[in-house]
Write a protein that binds this DNA or RNA. Sequence first.
DNA 1: TGCGGAAGTA
DNA 2: TACTTCCGCA
Length: 602
Amino acid sequence: VTPAGFVFPDWAYKPESSPGSRQIQLWHFILELLRKEEYHDVIAWQGDYGEFVIKDPDEVARLWGARKCKPQMNYDKLSRALRYYYNKRILHKTNGKRFTYKFNFNKLVLVNYPFIEVGTGRGIPQSAPPVPSGGTHFRFPPSTPSDVLSSSEELRSPGMFSSVARRMARGSVSDCSDGTSTNSELEEAVGADERGVGAERAFRGLLPPRLPHESLFRVYGGAPNPADPLSPFPVSPLPGPGGLLAPTLSPALSMTPTPHLPYTPSPSLSSPMMGSHFSFNPEDMKHYLQAHTQSVYNYHLSPRAFLHYPNIVIPQPHRPTLEKPPTHHLHLPLSHPLGPHPGGAEEVQQHPSPFKFKLQPPPLGRKQRDSGSSLASASSSSSSSSTSQSSFSGSGQLGGSGLAVEPISDIESEEEVEVTDISEEEEMNHIDEGGVFNPVHQANGTSSSCPPAPPHNHQDEDDDEEVFKTPATPPLGSAGPPFPLLNLQSEPGQAAPISPGGTRCIPLKLRFKRRWSEDQKMEADGERDEAEDKKVRADGGLETKGEAMEEAGGRKRGAELENVERKGVILGLMLPPPPTQRRASSELQRATAQLSLENTGC
DNA sequence: TGCGGAAGTA
DNA sequence: TACTTCCGCA
């Protein structure tokens, strides 16, 4: 449970899901097969980003059965398991295409496959899933906008691909003692010691032995260059400085290929993490961390995914957040010792949350849909076939309750997901209605702190919902490294856990004051950004979202970083995303004034 | 070929 | 929880 009391889906945490684990989950397994050339004839990426076709259902079933020691496995059963993922939004069926499914990458946890390679379409290595051809249109199911695949060892570092692949390979192999194992070759490649590694371990395993976290970070440093086969951000339709967002976020941004963008995925690699150039600079690291953090939250990644880095502020709603740096407040004092923050645990305990966050409610069942649930299906569901792929644009209405939305979003067509802005109020309502409440808010009493999410257009409401509901802080999973983010949750009103500099308990007054001044400064800086944002928004929601993000990332990076650096964690927590920036600012001021009177110290 | 309910399993 | 197994239905 996160400090805020939120809980991430189990599947996001389970170490057993790690490659090579006997407990591997089906989707992990599928990914493993997909990445292996040797299974190209059995299963392969095809079509849109994340879409894959099972060319030999029986074989896939057999492999799966072998892996799980279920000799009786067959495609019928396997497909049932896959269908089971529909509800979890991990997968969805590609309508009209036999044996074709599509990953909702954003839902997947990259933790165990931190470097999964997200490539691009046809003709590319199996390890590389088709990438959106460049459209910013998000086509993934509404529920998973940011589809980042978690499996990603390769994603992050193509250079490590081979070793990773080998590692991963073992995961594909069956460990059955009964000799059902089908891929001995894979097994050989795998070392017994490697089995059952946790996310952390997976990370490390993927990296050169001695590389510190920085090694991961630098991957993000480079600007993605679509033209460059080695581009770290092959998936990104909009090449640019925004490379930082790549690994985790890129998928989210540009999940779906769109015709209008001439972007050509790089065939061979695609590891977002593999930048055309690396940089270890703090900024990049920060960005990386930020992106990472965000992705963890946004995509419901396992907390383990968080790097052991203190003071990372988790941006609340991902997309918007990214766009607006100031909001993200990634505070990463480099000098800070890596590792969990002592205060983190405390925080967690301090905010036991009553809510438990789970994946969104499953999409409406066939029956429900058939019966013609008035809600979403009103428009076009009938025409579509059974799966969620049916094209809907019914995003128009966000159901009153967060839960209610689910079905709708589910129906939304990937192709034409209309983005609906979710206002803060709405979000809040969702949360409230959903029974989710951010303790922080409550505790604070200050509306300005930790705004749920900036309004942002999102294709998938589901995800958004999740994101919104998702608390800022990840749970301190047993498996996970301590959450650097924990302190993020600290509210201004309460004892400040830990400040960025490692300072504990800065007087509220002081903090606010500091923040205020910074805020104002930021506003000045942000002026330009805002203008840009507006422009971007005006251009058209989703369409430009990816672009906006990247652009923002690139152009604003400097300013952002500045702001980020200037801002303490606390500030980061409190500041809302840009659109709301001003508002937040004023609120802050108000709050500050109020608090200054009320609080005399910590 | 695909869906999804239901019960069962570990 | 994450399937596995079975099955009726479309």
